[in-house]
Design a protein around this nucleic acid. Structure first.
Lengths: 293, 293
DNA sequence: TATTTTGATAGATTTTGTCTATGTCGTATG
DNA sequence: CATACGACATAGACAAAATCTATCAAAATA
């Protein structure tokens, strides 16, 4: 049994006429006769009543038709879906760090969509910390994630796309406010608004202070970097935070940290050697060409 | 696209290994590779991730698989149904006159089923009058009907299978009770229990009385011949009814009608030159061989 | 009875599914 | 580090089958 026979069958069932159906199918009439005869032989059932003026489905033919129509309908919608995907349509499951969700990812996605006029690509956005993101990537929950690098992951391809410095922010009226750079040791006399335990950056900043062998006084512990910045602006303390555009709009002074040096790199991560759906492949190419460092 | 490719696809999706799947499918491994490659080319989508140790479905592959599995399941159940029908299984839609439903049809069906040990043939029974039965036959509502003949129906094949006499029944204590035959004229002095207007036999018996130029006195009008017989047994009148076995068990005397002569023939009717499902064909053959007159 | 219509049949041709043999790539192994 | 092996792809030959054109047979129409 073959698909084309089933397609011929449904067409013939519509027209009830071998000649007309063959014409509709763009084949010769004997081909259709042959195909239907073969189908009937295989099923052991007569599907059409060949009458003098026209043909018509038998009882079994009608019964079989209902199965075939349903099956073909499902199959065709599957084929259609695949063809849409192959033409670049599709959903890109994007994972990223919360920090990147503020401006980098939205701008990147918007840029990409602007360039892809006719294609209908949708993004699904998922923010999390690096560990779960990479786990999700390996489980194919995400097509692509933007996060920090973990060197032990041999099966993942990392392409650098963005970096972020850590800066000190202080209220405008603070003693350190007119400095351009500071050594982290100089911040120790002042109470800090600090990242909370469960925040991704807590570990990083702890390590930074470990390099100078001291920990700061902690006035408040907060998860969100934006909240930290807000508290600093209101004079609740000083803080080490990743640089973000938003800081410029707040009532804080931004000061470079001269020592210890630290730079945080962000990477686009995909499974190494793994097939990427066309839409994802396009997006990856776009990021490499326009936004990689 | 071909059916076999879809079947290969589902098998490969189960094993995730070209070699193993090919073995399961009883084909060579390159054939499978070729078939899948062709499917992928046609859909424009990569369905399998070929990895070093084993293969696995891509995201699109999983999506397509769900469609294909559903479609094949429906198609296969359709094929199975057809194959069962071709092996003689099936439902026979049987239409017949109510009269025949008392003993003739049940006995015929039981005889047939007794002879068809392993086959699972079921009957659907529908009783009606001749006109609607033949109409239903032409509309393929019934596969076969048992009724009286209508000569104008050129598209229907009638095969005689049973006949039935009209007899006079009277209560045991009736003046006519010890007669063996009567002329219908002799029944006119006595009140009749008569078939109602909408009964199939009313016309027939009216015509019978028209032959002697008179109509009887009507005491009661009833549709069902068995109810008529019951009323006669209880002394409500006399009646002309078709002969049935049941009459022997009632408290009535059965008397032949010597004049006018009348005989009612019953026929098995099928659409002329029309394809019959195997189960129906078998039953028709059985009736012709064992029960036709 | 001749003609038209409809579908089946026959034989040639082309397509395509399947096979065997071999190649390539990447991983394990000595 | 080279070799062997496992897993899939590729190439070319062969066989099966789907399509075509031409023709036939049966039934209905004129």
């Amino acid at each position: 049994m073959n698909l084309y026979q089933l397609r011929y069958f449904t067409t013939l069932a519509e027209t009830n006429h071998f000649g007309k159906a063959a014409e509709k199918l763009c084949i010769a009439q004997p081909s259709l006769s042959h195909a239907i005869a073969q189908l009937e032989a295989e099923l052991g059932v007569v599907l059409f009543e060949r009458k003098n003026r026209s043909s018509s489905l038998t009882k079994e033919g009608r019964q079989f038709l209902s199965y075939v129509e349903k099956a073909l309908e499902i199959l065709d919608s599957g084929i259609q879906t695949m063809e849409r995907i192959s033409h670049g349509e599709g959903v890109i499951e994007l994972g990223f760090l919360r920090t990147l969700g503020i401006s980098f990812i939205p701008e990147l996605a918007a840029d990409f969509l602007r360039e892809q006029k006719d294609k209908s690509i949708r993004f699904e956005f998922h923010s999390d910390t690096s560990q779960p993101l990479l786990q999700g990537l390996k489980e194919e929950k995400y097509d692509m994630v933007f996060c920090t690098k973990i060197d032990s992951e041999k099966s993942i391809e990392f392409i650098p796309v963005s970096k972020q410095d850590l800066v000190l922010i202080v209220p405008r009226a603070h003693p350190l406010a007119n400095r351009y750079t500071v050594d982290l040791t100089e911040t120790l006399p002042y109470p800090h608004v600090y990242f909370a335990e469960n925040s991704g950056l807590r570990v990083v900043i702890d390590q930074l202070f470990d390099k100078i062998g001291k920990r700061p006084q902690i006035a408040y512990e907060i998860q969100e970097d934006q909240v930290i910045a807000g508290l600093v602006a209101q004079g609740f303390g000083i803080a080490v935070v990743p640089y973000m555009e938003e800081l410029l709009r707040l009532n804080v002074k931004i000061i470079q940290i001269s020592y210890p040096y630290w730079e945080r790199n962000f990477y686009m991560a995909t499974l190494k050697g793994h097939y990427l759906p066309p839409a994802v492949q396009k997006f990856k190419q776009f990021v490499i060409e326009k936004h990689s460092l």
